[in-house]
Design a protein around this nucleic acid. Sequence first.
DNA 1: TTGAAAGCGCTACCAC
DNA 2: GTGGTAGCGCTTTCAA
Lengths: 352, 352
Amino acid sequence: MITRRENETTLKDVAERAGVHAATVSRALDPARQHLVNAKTREKVRVVAEELGYRVNTVAQSLRKGLTGLVGVLVADVANPFVAPLLRGIEQEFRTHGAMLIIAETHDDSQTLATALDNFAKRRVDAVILTAALQGDEPQVRDAAGGMPVVLAVRTLPSGDWPSVTHDDVLGGRLAAQHLVDLGHRRLAQLKGSSRNSSFLGRSTGYESVMATTTARDVTGDVIASAPTVEEGFRLTTMLLERDEKNVPTAIFAHNDQLAVGAIAAIKERGLRCPDDLSVVGYNDSPLAGHLDPPLTTVRLPTWELGRQAAHVVIEILGGAESVEPTPPLPPELIVRGSTAPAAVDAELASS
Amino acid sequence: MITRRENETTLKDVAERAGVHAATVSRALDPARQHLVNAKTREKVRVVAEELGYRVNTVAQSLRKGLTGLVGVLVADVANPFVAPLLRGIEQEFRTHGAMLIIAETHDDSQTLATALDNFAKRRVDAVILTAALQGDEPQVRDAAGGMPVVLAVRTLPSGDWPSVTHDDVLGGRLAAQHLVDLGHRRLAQLKGSSRNSSFLGRSTGYESVMATTTARDVTGDVIASAPTVEEGFRLTTMLLERDEKNVPTAIFAHNDQLAVGAIAAIKERGLRCPDDLSVVGYNDSPLAGHLDPPLTTVRLPTWELGRQAAHVVIEILGGAESVEPTPPLPPELIVRGSTAPAAVDAELASS
DNA sequence: TTGAAAGCGCTACCAC
DNA sequence: GTGGTAGCGCTTTCAA
């Protein structure tokens, strides 16, 4: 049996002790309405409230106002390194508005996503920031969201039904591919994440757009990581390295740092060296990326800023904005470190 | 102006359409009370509720029941690598109870901690899991917590006023120190975090208990990291290496992986090698620790399990348990990798 | 400037 | 097995 909290000081208690009506206390304590109250009364109320250790009951307030000051944030995986800065950005932006964040994870499962959204809806969160949308989730989001405002962050959805704030993953993919091509690599491959995830899809698109305009070959084939993990990076790279020589890449663009780390491990395992034999580019600039062996060349994202912008869009919507201006995708930055190097003299090239 | 949500389907709407009383709908829809309702009525209500897309209003429910199903989790820093598994453990344990987590950060600032607790209290969370307590925060916690149950996790407080679930940091410190001593190191040093943080304090205690029983020397001195970051690890280690030769350690126990990474960077910067010249042990087994250069020897914590246990204690308290049995500290595990090696033949030793 | 009354949506209790 | 009533703690009219 769960026991309910007892003996809480209520508005009425304060009112009685201060010798005024509850409504007056309510007004006196609300910064937005204190001016309606006589300065003396206001002070009296403040003092009594203090004495009694009064604390508003946000639950009652929410019921009455129809607003909870709660924003639901849905992430695929709290352990993902970009989640922390994202949450910080969101929190920062909401801090002045007194909103708090309620967080749930989807683990990239549509059913879990639907359930989480439903829970948010029952709790009457004022809005949802959804960072875990996968292509195909539209019906779940539409149904479960009901009347709640939803803002897509990090990952977007093709339908365009919801405002979204994203990184420019196409640019990130281009930056990575161009860097490798510029280093003289002639056979490149991607370690791709699921294309239902718009971030990964964008990275592929960017990479491919570069490959389309060079004479370097894309030897990726149709490999896709079943999950963007170190283990998958290792497995897929091992497969790439086992191909006949003409189809082994000399440079790999991994869709995130974990895949990249797995790739490097596979390269070493095979007795090859990174970057001497193969170059590897990661994505996300995870916390210790610069201290890996070798230090990882990767793409850095302004995720904190993205969080702020997503929160800002929410604030606009809640403020009654008819339509929010589309936010341009935030540009990433290539961080060149030790895992990429000029291509070794290449048989294919030499024979031409 | 913030607009309030309109046109929500309420219990009453469902009741009218189903031709029954609201109270009946309430009973029919609550798994715990459906048995009080005639099967036919129950089904009828279910169907109508479905049709109308009815969703309980948890806010009203909470007000009435005096229970929100919300648990506040206070962390020092969401980016800390152990936060993710901790949250998962907590969430996992609460999932069946339908509770959700509301999260706030303290950045190790007492004022921020007090404010966050106050916000939790206003929102009438059912309990707080506090992972960010620092020695000296007792008054803030006592005041701000008011009537809320508080469970200390990860970090504990000397006063013993609150139940707490922790890792066995003393053991962790001993494991690290013993490992280095066993490798033959004769001059060891710690990279210590603030002793107001019980985790760091425990690690020191463990380390010192080992040092007290060997002939190896502790050359730590009174250096303490102002923050447990890579930069501080670098700065402090540089200082250690600049000392006269007899006081330069050949092995370093860093209170977390970031400090360890900074230490390794400083060692390299000075033209020395890890582990050939100096061994380094970290703490936490951060995600990419095994892929650093060199792979980091570190202490792994069962943080997921800790989260589960903390949540479990909360559930017991909410269940009305008079007193909860103290939870024994969870044992960590030493993960030996490449950053530690036998001590080089030592001048001090050779001359003896 | 303050008070009184109503009601947000729900559930506990008591009648029937 | 079901209905009625009251009330959780607050804010918002409206009236004085």
